[in-house]
Design a binder for these strands. Sequence first.
RNA 1: GGCCCGUUCGUCUAGUGGUUAGGACUCCAGGUUUUCAUCCUGGCAACAGGAGUUCGAUUCUCCUACGGGCUACCA
Length: 468
Amino acid sequence: MNPVVRFAPSPTGQLHIGGVRTALFNYLFALKNNGTFLLRIEDTDIERSKDIFTEQIIESLGWLGFKYQGNPIKQSSRTKRYQEVIEYLLKTGSAYRCFATVQELDKLRNEKDNYLYPRIWRDRSEKEIEDKLQKKENYVIRIKIPLNGNIHFEDLVYGDINTDCSELDDFIIARSDGTPTYNFTVVVDDHDMQVSHVIRGEDHISNTPKQILIYDALKWDTPEFAHLPMILGSDGKRLSKRHGAVGTQTYRDLGYLPDTLINYLALLGWNPGTEDEVFNFQFLMDNFSLEKINKKAAVFDNKKLDWLSGQHIMKSESEELLDSIRSIKPDWAPNGLSDEYLFSIISHLKGRSKTLLDIINQSEYFFNDPIKYDQNAVAKCWGEDTSELLKSFAEKALTCLDWKDESIEACINDFSEKKYVSKGKLIQSLRVSICGSLTGPSMANLMSLLGKETCIRRLNNAQKILSE
RNA sequence: GGCCCGUUCGUCUAGUGGUUAGGACUCCAGGUUUUCAUCCUGGCAACAGGAGUUCGAUUCUCCUACGGGCUACCA
């Protein structure tokens, strides 16, 4: 039997980085085992769920390249089915109506330190319930938890988990407005979707026994469960908005590649046992297994993400990088420049960039003459004799007919020799004049890329400023 | 409070009943490089604590501490 897995986010915000990890592990598991990956939108919380978030989640999954089969299933479209199952549970005595009010329960809760719903409506007579129904009083539906017994399941990551029934509430499966709650819908959906492996966050371990009881009441088979360790912020607390960027789209806008995020997240709580840590998707797909998942919660480390990002950028083709850059900054580079020219720029910058944003930020001098010159660089490289130096170098450059890397290099070498100027000093002066800063690709590369005309113009500009 | 889960360098992790406890990121010091980045070399740095089992425990068991999760008419 081929496995069926699902990713089931609730559309109450951007796709969270923790959600991406859960989706990724589900997806990898499906790919590795020739299974099916499904998407389900858990929007039973009408208050907080928004369509816009559903769209964003789908868009983010697309950006990451996670392909789910068929259309996403929305819980909000399954009300009828939930009602049908609830009816069945009611009829078979596995669930019951509870007419206790919120206020009433709050009061009880405050009286006790260790509160469990006291089951005050569990064994009322039919007449009593009929009575209340006649009066149209509000009620919720609760599941009838066995009074004693033990619930056991074997988690594929955490191993044996045992829970005593006495620990469990008769929890609510349908609210007073009739809408079903999470622990109930998740069971009905997973069953109906024929999910074979439930792979989700560790925060659901405690929910699992409750869900198993519903499977039991319905006489349905339970799926396998695999819980994933949490991802924490640098303070060791559960990752949340307080830790800054947690939304997938934010990471995209910050200039991270999908492969970087996937690679990093895969390494959080899982590792293939290799010393190398830079992986492409294919490798993950081939090597993924639930057995290698850790139990320990992992802290999200932006420094390592940045390093990994640099690795992926460096390895990426310039063509791909250009596409990615355009997707986050469509107006990067002035109109009229050929893609070939932009590829060259990218190939010179990608080795010294951690993110796409780094490439964008460093590319300014390829497009415009420097307006401002970095003060540090000026102090370091521009002296009294620089004006004269630039002037005579510009004159020499003018005579360089074949404006290519090698000839420019030769020109620089020759000038340095004849004028008794150290090559380093010369180049740094040129760099400040041409780029406005002290960092960047090799000078001859840069000059050939910018073109003779541009270089000489910039040298003249700098010389003018210096002689003022 | 109750229940559940976890605990190897600052972080991500490997690992075994006997190892100089390995790697990666970060940080520091050198080197290469016209600059930056890369790259190379070296360095700092961990088995939470206590008992038990054992000839021997980081590894097995128990307890404690600490951290996280659940305990909603959230998911």
